[in-house]
């Protein structure tokens, strides 16, 4: 089972991850990175399919506003992430399974910290029961 699926714009999230890997970092077991050509190509279905296939959490990453090469890819990524969160909430599953962050290529340390935090959170089911 993948604990965490990272779906990110390859120009920002992908660059940050590659920089991190150049320092010797390896993605922890159960974490996979799914690159997108742009945050604007994120689809609600990408997020849902990741959860359906067993991911505990999904982290969506896009560029900062005004840094998107396609102008507003980050806006669409944020909107579609919010739509996926709204669907989960409506279905009674809790939106905390899905996290959205803006990232720039030089934020490799932040990315490593986010991954560490997300994979060390309690499983969502356990949180639901608490």
């Amino acid at each position: 089972m993948n604990k965490l699926v990272i779906i990110g714009c390859d120009r920002s999230a992908g660059e940050a991850l590659r920089s991190l890997q150049e320092t010797g970092y390896c993605l922890p077991e159960g974490v996979i990175y799914q690159p997108l050509p742009c945050g604007g190509s994120l689809d609600v279905l990408h997020v849902l399919r990741a959860l359906e296939s067993g991911a505990e959490r999904v982290l969506v990453l896009s560029c900062y506003a005004d840094a998107c090469r396609s102008f507003n890819g980050n806006t669409w990524a944020e909107k579609r992430t919010a739509a996926a969160q709204a669907l989960l909430t409506e279905a009674g599953l809790g939106q905390e399974r899905i996290t959205y962050r803006q990232v720039s290529p030089n934020m490799s340390a932040d990315l490593g910290a986010w991954i560490h935090t997300l994979i060390n959170l309690e499983p969502v089911e356990a949180q639901d029961r608490a």
Partner: peptide, 14 residues
């Protein structure tokens, strides 16, 4: 077709 995929995924999860 797209909405069918989204809704069925949500229903399966729910």
């Amino acid at each position: 077709a797209k909405e069918v995929s989204v809704l069925s995924a949500v229903l399966r999860l729910a």
